[in-house]
Every structure is written in C-alpha cells, then in structure tokens.
Nucleic acid binder design. Sequence first.
DNA 1: TCTGGGGTCCTAGGACCC
DNA 2: TCTGGGGTCCTAGGACCC
Length: 424
Amino acid sequence: MFALVDCNNFYASCERVFNPALRSRPVVVLSNNDGCIIARSEEAKALGIQMGTPVFKCRDLLRRNKVAVFSSNYSLYGDMSSRVMTTLADLAPDIELYSIDEAFLDMSSFGRYDLAKYARLIRRRVRQHTGIPVCVGIAPTKTLAKVANRLAKKNPQYQGVCLLDRAELIASALAMTKVEDVWGIGRQLSKLLSARNIKTAADLAAAPAPWVRKHLHITDAKVQAELNGTSCLPMELVRPAKQSICTSRSFGKSVTTWEELHQAVATFAGKCAVKLRKEGAVASMLTLFIGTSPFDDIEARYWGTKSIALPYPTQDSMTLIHAAQSVLDLLFRAGHGYKKAGVIVSELSPVAFAGRTLSLFADEAAADSEQSKTLMLVMDGINQRYGRGAVRLASENSVAWKPNQEQLSPCCTTRWGDIMVVKG
DNA sequence: TCTGGGGTCCTAGGACCC
DNA sequence: TCTGGGGTCCTAGGACCC
C-alpha cells in the first residue's frame, strides 16, 4: 500500500502559518514576476479565481473581496516543505519526496494496522509540527493513491483521509474521477480519450489493454495497469541525479539593450553554476534562450535558442558565464524588447568524474583548475553565511531586469531579521 | 500596462553503420 | 520494370508533472 500525503494549497497555507490574521481571509500567491495566480486558499477558489489567471484580469475581484495577495516566497516554501518532509519521514519506514508539497509513504509493512486511523495521525502530526494542513490518500498503487488523495481533498466528508483498500471502494472512486483528473493524463490525451467515449477513470481502467498499448504510449499503459491495481511505479527512495538544470526569468520590464541582457544572462549562468555545485555535478553543455513576450504582435516577436559544448565539464561560475555570454552574442538581435531569458546546463556528470577523461588536445584543460575550485568554495561559503548575493561576480547584476515582487512576505524561517516584522 | 519556473519521459524521424 | 535487411544513435518537439 502507498500513502500520498499532499499539502493543501501549499503556498497559500505557508503564508498563513506565520500570519494568523490571514486565516479567515482568502489568500492567493503570485508567480515569480507577480504575473499570474499560482496558489489559492479554499476561500479564493470559492470566489471563482482560476489557477494561472493573470492578476490584471482579476484585480477588481481581489480588491472587492479583500483577498490577501503575495509574491512567491520560495525561501519560505522550501523551508516549510523540508519541515513537512522531516515530520513525514518519522511516520513511515520509507518516503519518496515527490514534489515540494507531496510525498509518497511506503505503507506495505503496516500489515493489518488500521490505515485510516494512521492517516488521521499523519494529518494531526504534520499540522501540529508545521501548521500546514494536508490530505492523505492510501491505495494499492501510486496512481490510485493519487485518486484517493484527490477525493480526500474535494469532499469535506472524508475529513482529509481516503483509504481505498477494497475492490468496491476502488471501483466507485474510479467512477467518480474524470479521466483528465488521473495522474499522467493531460489535456491532449483526455481529448483523445473523450473522443473514444472514455470519460472517467473507470472507463480508462476498463478499456481493452491492447488498444491502449497500440494507440497510446507505454506510460499510459502503465497508468491503466495502476488503475487496475497492478503497481508499476515503485517508490523512488533516492532522488535520481538531475539531468539538466535551468535558471530562467521573465523580466519586470522589457529589456532592449545588449548590456542589460548581458547582465541578466550572466546572472542566470551564475545561478546555474551555484545549483551545479550544490548538486555536486559538472555540465558539458550550455543552452541559452532569449525571447520577446509571446503576447507581442507577431511581427515584433523573436525567439532565439542555441546550445554549445563547454570546453570541458565544469561547475565554475566564470566559465559558464563566459560561455553564456558568447552564445548571447550569436542570438542577440537589436531592436527587440526582450521579456524573458534563461540558461540551461545539461549533459551533467558527478563532479568526482570531472577531469578523468584527458583532453585530446594537449593545451586544453580537462577540468576546472584547483584555483577555480577553491574560489568557488570560498564564494559559496561566504554567500551561505552572509546571505545570497553577499559576493558575486561583477557581471552578475539584476538592477535593470529585476522581476516585480511587490507583495513579498517575510522569510520567517530562514532569515533572523525578518522575524521582527511579523505582527499578530 | 500587466500573462511562471523547473523538470522528466517518450516518440518519430533523420543520419548513419554493416 | 526490377532496387535488402537489420541495426544504433541523436535530436527536436510534444506531452506530461508540480
């Protein structure tokens, strides 16, 4: 048996934990550039505010209903997430951290223990330790646990817990679940299935397996098997090594000059380097993309993307920034108002392997130098101790293109200075 | 005026091998 | 008119997840 523990309206709930005055008010959290609504409390959902709505389209509604609006505060959400996960790790022998607000727990060793009762204990414990409300779904496969969790969330009478441990319970749960709400079935696929009159999870479970395998993907065949109680997706107890790392942003205002874009690109490459070092990986490939707003007139739009091989597998900020800027020179077209850019590093390998392969060309290094490694170590150390950005390379700068973040809440759990401003 | 960010997996098809 | 068979590798792009 698998339990899926999923935090309710996670970002909105995080904002509430340290601000009790928000408990009776609708709360929404905005995307990185204060552009779209990406999290909503139950009260906000009840107002009809949809996921992904641009704020400017519902500003009146927000004001009329005194909705509390926040910029996204990932320091806070990341820290609250690890508190929730730490609490959960004590409650089951094995745990898979699936996303920032979800984890699977391995319940297979619980035997004849009352799982519904245990699920209620999980909810209480997480609430007590972190202040975050969660729902728990338990079932024989991960996909069914997802179904169960969804029912627990949608139906107040379940009180946050749904246990699917008998065939008739599973059957009725599948009949209640629309096919587009099944984990792994997205918009395109549900359109296709709907045309074949497959409208509920029960319909999908009952569809002839050979037809599914022939006309859909192998992943969808697994979804179907999981709905029918055959577990195809095992617990993943260790996070697999990342294959790529991306840093990208939309700009608070459109960027027109080469200099500003250069700074943005340098900053993103620098952030990728920090993430690489945190991951313990080196990258062999770098991709840069820059673009105008997709909402611009079609003739004003521009989208450029290009990848280059790095001189050797690296995690050095200066090497990556230099590479990203050289790609920018190839992609930059004057006369556009750029709205977004990003850097992706890929072909990652563990840092322990860096330099094992000798360069074919004798005058080329095969890995970062000892000086560069030491310098990066010192930089990361200083930034960890004194705060991100305490030291940076001169080319990294975020003045001109800085994203809008007008409603940022304090970092109550990660920054001492911020604790003082909390009231209530 | 204002429209997110960061990932993975799968497949089709081209280019190449013998 | 007739024109093999069996592979691998790589990439772009689509679809999905949160």
